[in-house]
Every structure is written in C-alpha cells, then in structure tokens.
Design a protein around this nucleic acid. Sequence first.
RNA 1: GCCCUCAUAGCUCAACUGGAUAGAGCACCGCUCUUCUAAAGCGGAUGUUGCAGGUUCGAGUCCUGCUGGGGGUACCA
Length: 652
Amino acid sequence: MNALAEIRSRFATALEPLVDSPTELMKMIKAANDAKFGDYQANVAMPLGKELGKPPREIAVQIMESVKLDGLCDNMEVAGPGFINLKLDDDWLKSRLATALSDSGLGVSKVTDPKTYVVDFSSPNVAKPMHVGHIRSTVIGDAIAKILKFAGHNVITDNHVGDWGTQFGMIIYGYKHFLDADAYKKDSVTELGRLYKFVRQLVDYHGAKSKVDDVADKIVELTGQLSGLKEKQSAATEKAETKKIKKELSAVQKRLDSQKEAGESLTEKIKAIESNPNLFGIANAHQKIGQQVLLETAKLHEGDEENKKLWTEFLPFCWEDMRKIYRRMNVEHDHELGESFYHDMLGAVVDDFEAKGFARTSDGAVCVFMDDYETPMIIRKKDGAFLYSTTDLATIKHRVEHFKADAALCVVDHRQHEHFDKLFDAARLWGYNDIELTHVSFGTVLGEDGKPFKTRSGDTVGLESLLDEAESRALAIAVEQNPDLTEDQQQHIAKTVGIGALKYADLSQNRGSDYKFSYDKMLALRGNTAAYLQFSYARVQGIIRKTEADMEKVRSNPVPFEFATDIERELAVKLIRFGEAIDEVLIEYKPNLLCSYLFELTQVFFQFLEKCSVKDAETESLKQSRLQFCDLMSRTVETGLGLLGIGVIEQM
RNA sequence: GCCCUCAUAGCUCAACUGGAUAGAGCACCGCUCUUCUAAAGCGGAUGUUGCAGGUUCGAGUCCUGCUGGGGGUACCA
C-alpha cells in the first residue's frame, strides 16, 4: 500500500465514530500543496465542522488525537482553519525505499480488484496514410493500456481499424483500371498506395467540378448579405439592434471565410488535374468514377466474389504498410478486430433492437430514439446499409461476451463526444449495464498558427513525415552533443529521443485540450520534455560507470538509506510517490499526471546531483545509500517512461 | 436555433476534481563548468484566472447570465 492509501485507511478508522461513511472524505486527504506544510494534508475537519456543528479546528484536534499514525507519520499539526498537516516518519520512508529497491515493481502494489479492460486505440483506416490525427489516439491509448497493466489489471488492447470502407472501393477500382502489373509484382504496398491516391485524386476532381459553382454562388450570396448587413449596421440607431447586427455580421463573415477556403481548395484540386493534359484525359474518360467507387464498395459488402477476393489479397499489404509505422512507434495491439470482423453480426444487432422494441423505423431508417437526445441514433440507413454506430454496438457486445470486459475505453477525438454518449446509452438500453463504457476523448492537434495542423499546401500532415522530422531533428542535436560517439550510437539516440519527444509532447498535455504542435518545443533540451527525463537516466548510467559500481551488488546487499541532506529526504518522498502517480492517472485516464510526476521527480533528482556527490561521499555507507538513490531513480524513470511508451538510453 | 466544450503570466501549459500565498517550462536579465554529462543547477521579474452576479467557512474549479474561440447537431466515420 502506498503512503497515501495507508494514511487514508488509518484516518478512515479514526473517522468511523464521527460519520456514517468516511470514504467520501478520503479524497480530502492528499499530498501537501506545498512542501512547507509537510508531506501530506488532511482537509477533512472543515466539511465535518458544518455537519457536526463544531468549530473545524476543534474537530481537527479531536481527529488528531484519535488517529493512529504511529510508525507512519512522526509529526502532525493543525493549521489555518483546520488543516491537518502530516509529515512522514523518516524510518518509515527508509523502509519503503528499501522495499522499492528490492522489488522489480518498485514497491508499487497491485490493485486488489483487478478488472478486465479493453482499450481501443489508434483505429486508423487501412490503405489510407496515417496522419497527425492518429498520433494522439495511438500514444494516449498505448500509455493508458500500459499503466492499467502495471497497476495490475487485465488489459486487452484492440485496434478497431477501418478495413471495410470506401477506400477499398477506390483501390479495387484502381486495380481494375490503372494497375501497373510490374510495379504491383515488385512492390505491392507502394503500388496499392499509388492506386488509392490516384483514384482519390480523380474522385476529388469530379467532386470539386460539381461543387465549385455552388461554392462560387454561395460566396457571391454571402458577400451580398455582408454588404447588406453593413448598410443596416450604419443605419441602426438602437443599441440592441446594433448588437444583433454585429453578431449576424460576424456569423456571415465566418461562413464566407470558410466558403472561400473551400473554394480555394476545390480550385487547387481542379488545377492539379487540368494542368496536366494526360491526367485531364484520364479524368474525362472516367466521368462517373465517384459512383463507380461506391458501387465497387457496395459489391464488396454484398459479398461479390471478385471484390472479396481482391480485398482479401490487398488487406495484408495494407497491414504491412501500417505495421511499419507501429514498429517505428513501438506500439502493439493484442487484437486488430476491424470493421470487417463485425460485418456479419450487424444484421442481428438491428434485428435484436427491433425485436426488443428499442428501435423503430423512421423515414425509412431504423432508429433508436432516446429521451435525452433530440435526434435518434440510426443503426440502419434507408438504403439498408449499416453505420458506424451499428458496428460499435456489435463491438460492445463482443467485448462483453467474448472478452468478458468490465470496462471498455475508446480513445477517440472529442468531436465524437455525442456519438459516444448516444452509443453508450443505447448499449445500456440494450442491457449492457455492468460494463464501464468510457470515451477517452482528446483535443485537436493544432499548428503554430492555432489552426488544425496542416502542411503548407493545406493537406493533413502524414504521420510518417512527422516521425522522420522528429528523428532528423533529434539526430542533429545528438551529433552536436555527442561528437565522439559512433554514427550508430548517434542514430540510436536520435530515434529514442526523437520518437520519445513526439510522444511526450502529446502525453504531457492534458488530453482534453487542443494543443499546439511545435518541433522546437518538443525537442527542447530543457523543460518538461522527454529529453530532460531521458537525460536523468543517462546521468545515472554515467555515475555508475565513473564510480565503477556493481548495481546488482548494490541491490542485493542494501545498506540503510541515509538522509544526510534535506534534498535526499525530498528525493525519497518523491520516489515513494510513484504508485500514487499511477493511481491518479487511472482516476480519469490522464497520462499527463504521470508526466508531471516524472518531471518533478527529475527536477528534484538534478538538485540532488548538484548537492550530493556520489563518488566523493563522506563515508562509504553514504556512498552506498546514494548509489541506491541513483538506482531507484533510474529504475523509476525507466519504468515511468516505459509506461508512456518511451525508451531510455545509456549515454546522450 | 439547440447541445457539448474551452478561455489561467508575453508564449506553451499545470493546478491532485471545493482548500492555505494560483504553479511549471519557454522567452528575458544575471550567476555557476580543470569537479559523478552545462541536454544541468541557482537567483530575478511576470496574474483583477474572459466579464458580471450567485452558492459557502473557502471558488480558477459549482450555479446563472454575458462575451469570445472550437466542436457537434437523423441516414459520414
């Protein structure tokens, strides 16, 4: 049990005579806000003051007298309106450190009630290049899964890939009309990728052609509206009226801007084709490509033999392409049950909803109407096709019945918030009440201009190019910092630091908010970055080399920890809080809390290194104690970063 | 229109879910390397937590209204 849990349990016992249910109050016992108040603080007396009709300070004193903290805390005092400040007993601290030193799990106790979690993350569409939008789900989901596992839960990771959608219609169409057989034979992955992009371009072209006039009309219309409103604004005299017009004005302006932007993007797509006579010819020869692609997709879904065969043939190549990225990011899934896996179950889902009276037909579509929502959740379109929501319901059913999941976490961006609300409510309506269903949502990755991260030409940024750029920038720094190392070593540093930086930049952010992407910031050598943490590990390895210490021996023949300086005690308190950081992450699935913990730990550790020499410690036992600190530190950072999917290096 | 969400230091973000004087990092100004890695450490300045009310011992956090951004809003995923 970690220190906080231990303190809480002792307080719970002491509070039992005072209140019916002390568990509610337990969250009011926490790590001290400020080290000068001690290590922990209990704020329970204030809310109790009201309940019991006594001054909070009096209650605080009463609690202090009844709570048994012997051996755990050596100092307790009441401060302010009724805060109880607690300081851990040094001997207790030292014994916790000793436990952590000898335990491969760093003394972090496993949960007493392990649950089965399905963590669903990454979920890209196969055959489409992964882009910057996929990084958050991948990195956050991977970290949460690892942390749950570390805490002692049974974790099943699942990649709910889109392997059944329109992109296959495109590839199939491309295969049938534009295949370069030699290229396909030589390098199938690349050729399929080319076909996808090519067909996509043609579809986009025709789409753009049909839309461009509409958009132009709209721009004219909106411009007209805008000048009309401006006239009205200058004529308006009443305050309320002016305000109303101003509001409309900005709304129209916004719509105009977005139409203009859309218009530009359409024009560009058209230009790309029409400026090339060869492409233009092909585009004209495939006027109906958009419908054709949908037709190929529909044929696949209906079980058309030829298309099913092609799909089966293409899928492994598409997977290979994606695995390349996952290998570079060092991310794995236990299962990869894509949309196609659930395809055959969808009819039964709809039938069951209808049979149980949870769904009915409206405007030709099968809908689930729920009280809290204006619009229903549609589970079958009027043309008979199923939707994402249908697949998701089948997925929940499968996770409960096949995986026996107690919880399913879907790591998906926050735009799908309402979809998941509806989905989860529908699932509960369906009878899946015992499973925790959580949408672990996250914000958008923005460029430095505060708008969604795009390339200069306006495309979404490819994930692969992101990895390349991170690594090459890291390499430049690694070469500069370590001119004496071999090229292989520099490459290794660049990969670990580069990918680590990319992941950490994402994870260290509160997942709910949007964040601005910046290579410079994430690869910064200082501050709350992966490199800063990785460096602390490398420093320890340097100390071990210089002191020629045998760490196996240090661990197997421990000496008592010594607090020769204040900073050593401070480091000790930080070190034993690793388990608390893990607990906190899991309350709301927020990996940034682990990042903050590791960052704070590292700050304290660097202060420790400034003030405390290991090699030149005053006594042999102090030297051993400090080596033990170094060992705990490096293992905590290694484990902590590992839980975030980030590696460490011996030298950097 | 309706619903969700966000607004914190010049910038990027925290704040343990209602607790003590709102914290870090960048950037800025200084200082510390013949010393276990200066990818480090130490010191300095920075705030009406968007605005106006309310709830209470106590509010960045909860409730109401307003302003401003982002997202969603029945057959896309």
